[in-house]
Each structure stands twice: as structure tokens, then as C-alpha cells.
Simulated scan of single mutants.
Amino acid sequence: MRFSAFIKGSRCSALTGPRLRLALALLLAGSAAAAEAAPPTLHIGPHAFQVEIADTPRERAQGLTGRSYLPADNGMLFVFERPGRYCFWMRDTPLPLSIAFIDATGRIASLADMQPRTETRHCPSVDVRYALEVWQGEFQKRGITPRMRVDGLPK
């Protein structure tokens, strides 16, 4: 009731014909942009993680540094241009994290738990193209193990 009363008494009532179509087109374009901006979701078996993507050298170097909170179903996906043995440490990261090293075919090669604010290096034993960091213990809690497939990875 209030909404229609607002429309009648506002300038929006002048949105007819071409103006209405333009307004709707702009609204739909904004919705499409918002949908594209939504964080990607990765699936490992029945489990879903919304992830931020770190695919540039600067983003990968920053990672989750300085963050004090990460929801259990969120994470950061590190994407590398080509497979390699990329190592991670937690020097300025106050969060306890688990990491999944993922090969170019989308299979988890190995998992590791990483302690906050340490310089211990965590490296995969094989070449990987991706690394997924989540709140520590989430992989174990969900029964996620090496050799499981990760779906939704960017190419």
C-alpha cells in the first residue's frame, strides 16, 4: 500500500513509455552486473565455498593478510597462470587456516593446516595450479580429503 502511494505522489509516475523502458533496462543491467560481481562458488562433493579470487601477483601476495575473520563457508582461491610448486606461509595472517593444493585437473593434491603468524612454509609435493584457503579445520570437519574433485574452478 505504501509503495503504490509513494509512486503516485512522486516523480516516478512520469516514467511511462520510453522512459519506463530505459529505467527498466538500467535496472536490469545493474542486476546483471551485481550477479557477475557475486563471489564464485566452488563445490567439493556436497560442500560449497564462496571464494574470493587472487589471480594477480599482487592479490596472491596480499592473500588473507591482516584479516581477523573468515566465515566457515568462505575462502580465498589462489589461481596461478601455470602449474608449479607454490609455497605458502602465514607471516602476517592472524587467522588459523587450512589449505588445499589443487592440481590443473581440479583434484586436491594435498591438504595442510597453517598456524597464524608463522613463517613455516607449506608446499605441495606435486605441481598445482590452485590453492584454496579456508578456516582451519573446515576440510577435516566436512570430510574433504586429497584426490577429491573441486568443481567451479576458473580456467
Rank of each mutant, 00 (worst) to 15 (best):
I102P: 08
M148R: 05
G63L: 10
A48Q: 13
W89H: 09
S13D: 01
L28M: 00
T105F: 00
V134A: 03
L97R: 03
A131Q: 05
F49T: 14
S110D: 03
L15H: 01
L77H: 07
S68M: 12
R147Q: 15
M76A: 05
I144A: 09
V128K: 02
I53Y: 02
P18V: 15
T65N: 09
R129Q: 02
R147S: 11
D73A: 14
Q62R: 13
F88D: 08
H47A: 11
E52K: 06
S4C: 12
P18G: 12
R58A: 15
E133W: 03
G75Q: 11
S4Q: 15
A14E: 14
A104K: 11
D55H: 04
L153P: 08
Q115Y: 03
A38E: 13
F139E: 02
R91F: 13
V128P: 10
P83K: 06
Y69V: 15
R142E: 01
P146H: 05
H43M: 13
S31V: 15
D113H: 09
I108T: 10
D55Y: 00
P39F: 12
R85N: 10
L77V: 04
I108G: 08
P71G: 05
F49A: 11
A48V: 11
I99H: 02
E36G: 00
A54T: 03
P57M: 02
C12N: 00
I7L: 07
A23H: 04
R149C: 00
S10G: 02
A23L: 06
Y69R: 14
S125K: 15
E81N: 05
G63D: 07
P154A: 06
Q50A: 15
Q136N: 11
E52I: 01
T93P: 10
L70F: 12
G84A: 13
S10E: 00
V128H: 01
A54Y: 04
R19F: 09
R67Y: 07
R121G: 07
M148K: 10
D103W: 10
R117C: 01
F139G: 13
G17H: 12
H47C: 01
E36K: 12
Q140M: 14
Y130G: 06
Q115P: 00
V126N: 11
V126L: 14
P40D: 05
H47L: 13
A72F: 00
L20V: 07
C12W: 01
K141P: 00
I7A: 00
R85F: 01
D151I: 15
V79W: 04
P40S: 10
Y69N: 14
F3V: 10
T105H: 09
P18L: 14
E133F: 08
G63Q: 08
